[in-house]
């Protein structure tokens, strides 16, 4: 088992992750993070999000560079389509979170991955957000994720990877459980 673990490489530094887990167990404050994004209206339904700084490991932190995300709506909505819709960005986040988890757990379990692809779909009844029917919620009615994975492992072990990834996924938890959200506004 140890030999297998040493020879597989999914590009995940499991030792660092386990080290962080150990440090956070000893000192929970070390594991208190605050993630941040900014958002600025551009025009129409087009806005730009930026991500650069965050707080964690008991200090201010920063990415190696600033990342920007354009959000807009497609031409079919009479918008200019400068970016994905916010709901599609949620699907991107879910896929990113689950796949990152699959890679990390595979590394920890000594499973070599060759390819991992996923299709993420959400069903959405727009009568909710357009106010056409008060009984229809704004949110998705269902989300489906379909993984295709080529790995040195049995089908059961691959299924267990994906199940464990869901269990440890922040975005999966965010989508499947309620979160308290407060929105404040300042006029200038």
């Amino acid at each position: 088992m140890t030999e297998t673990t040493a020879t597989i490489d999914n590009g995940v530094n499991v030792e660092a992750l386990l080290g962080a887990r150990g440090a956070i167990t000893e000192d929970p404050a070390f594991g208190q993070f605050t993630w941040r994004a900014t958002n600025s209206w551009v025009n129409g339904t087009h806005s730009r999000g930026e991500v650069e700084r965050f707080y964690g490991f008991s200090d201010e932190q920063a990415h190696s560079k600033k990342f920007t995300f354009d959000a807009d709506h497609p031409l079919q909505f009479a918008a200019e389509d400068h970016g994905a819709t916010p709901v599609e960005i949620v699907l991107v986040a879910l896929g990113g979170c689950l796949t990152g988890g699959v890679a990390s757990i595979a590394q920890q379990r000594g499973i070599q991955l060759r390819s991992v692809t996923a299709t993420i779909e959400a069903d959405h009844d727009l009568r909710g957000i357009l106010g056409a029917d008060p009984d229809v919620p704004n949110r998705f009615s269902a989300v489906r994720v379909d993984y295709t994975i080529d790995a040195d492992a049995s089908p059961e072990d691959v299924q267990a990877l994906v199940a464990q990834s869901q269990k440890r996924s922040a975005v999966f938890d965010l989508l499947t459980n309620p979160t308290a959200v407060t929105v404040k506004v300042a006029s200038i």
Partner: peptide
């Protein structure tokens, strides 16, 4: 899983399929 209570509404998590899959996989192991 009971994830939240807002006013009179109980909110139940959408993770039931995965917790069942996890339990079935663990059982088969």
């Amino acid at each position: 899983r009971l994830g939240g209570i807002q006013g009179d509404v109980l909110q139940l998590a959408g993770s039931l399929p995965n917790v069942c899959t996890l339990a079935d996989l663990k059982l088969n192991r």
